[in-house]
């Protein structure tokens, strides 16, 4: 059996509407947050979980981590049912919510860590070893005596990660971990997560809107929309399905020759941007056409921006 097995998961929320004029009771309506979602994840996998806002990503993570009780379906994580054996379950997992802190605001982060040690009942030796390794990898050593409120966003996120990994969880949920971080911090964080996954075999489920995070970290992605699972597989396959066009930027010695109608041309001074689909017009043929018109001085070929692809995908899936 898989490490995480989710079978026909359902969860609905009742929302109370604002009372309308002339009515005594407020109307209630039900929002189906998750509709028959099933998937499985093996130990040591690094999985990206994407979807537009309100798709049900957070709800899934909250059920998997034992915060919420689902309405129907079955979930096991390492043979535990999260919401039934909450205390036992959360001992083995770590969670980082990008926008919510689990450390104490006014005290040095070292004090927070040491209290977490007591909460998770981590033996002293194991704690010290783990803390040293983590603070080094996350470059926190010099910040241990600083209160959380004085840390920058990037430093804070590193401290949060450290706090959620102190007890050596086998499964890590990350919710928007790179939100608001600068480029350097982002890269460092990604590198750290890869290392954690590789060296400790930690299973990681990453929820994010940042497609670069997914592209850099996750060989496998799941797409959720309107509470249903829409895609589950390799990111490259997903992109290939929607990634049909290429953009060729060229600088020609002579005039641009007439091109087949499937090409779109945009002029930009001496440069020309040609958007084409290699399926209809193979790249080699296009180059031949261009070379026939004059010397090809410069040429670059680009795929489309990942974010645009995802937007196109959401549009097509009608999300």
């Amino acid at each position: 059996m898989s490490y995480i097995a989710v079978e026909a998961l359902n969860k609905a929320f009742t929302v109370r509407k604002k009372r309308e004029k002339g009515r005594l009771l407020r109307e209630k309506s039900t929002v189906q947050a998750l509709k028959d979602v099933s998937f499985s994840i093996e130990q040591g996998e690094l999985v990206g979980y994407i979807g537009p806002n309100g798709a049900g990503k957070s709800t899934t993570v909250k059920i998997l981590s034992g915060i919420l009780t689902p309405d129907g379906g079955s979930v096991t994580v390492g043979s535990r049912v999260p919401w039934k054996e909450r205390k036992e379950h959360v001992r083995h997992i770590g969670v980082v919510f990008g926008q919510r802190t689990q450390l104490w605001w006014d005290v040095p982060i070292l004090d927070s860590f040491s209290l977490l040690k007591d909460i998770y009942r981590v033996p002293r030796e194991a704690y010290e070893k783990r803390l040293e390794a983590l603070t080094e990898a996350l470059q926190l050593t010099d910040l241990l005596r600083t209160p959380l409120r004085l840390l920058s966003l990037g430093q804070r996120m590193r401290a949060e990660l450290c706090g959620s990994l102190l007890h050596g969880p086998e499964l890590l949920f990350l919710d928007e971990p790179t939100i608001g971080l600068d480029a350097v911090s982002k890269l460092a964080l990604r590198e750290f997560l890869q290392k954690e996954n590789r060296e400790n075999g930690t299973t990681i489920l990453l929820t994010t809107h940042d497609m670069e995070d997914i592209a850099a970290l996750c060989p496998r992605v799941m797409v959720l929309g309107h509470g249903q699972k829409l895609y589950d597989g390799a990111l490259t396959d997903l992109l290939a399905r929607y990634d049909t066009d290429r953009v060729m930027t060229v600088r020609l010695g002579g005039d641009l020759p007439p091109l087949p109608p499937c090409c779109q041309v945009q002029r930009d001074g001496e440069n020309a941007r040609i958007t084409y689909s290699p399926e209809q017009l193979p790249t080699a043929d296009l180059i031949t056409l261009l070379q026939a018109a004059g010397p090809l001085r410069e040429m670059t070929i680009q795929g489309q921006n990942v974010d645009r692809l995802i937007a196109a995908m959401y549009r097509e899936m009608d999300l």
Binding site: K62, S65, G66, I67, R86, K87, E88, V90, R91, I93, V95, F97, R100, T101, Q102, I119, Y120, R121
Partner: peptide, 17 residues
């Protein structure tokens, strides 16, 4: 505020925490 989530993620009773 939803901060209660943080407590639920720890292996201790909610009321204790």
């Amino acid at each position: 505020s939803g901060q209660l989530d943080t407590l639920l993620l720890r292996p201790r009773g909610v009321l204790t925490q």
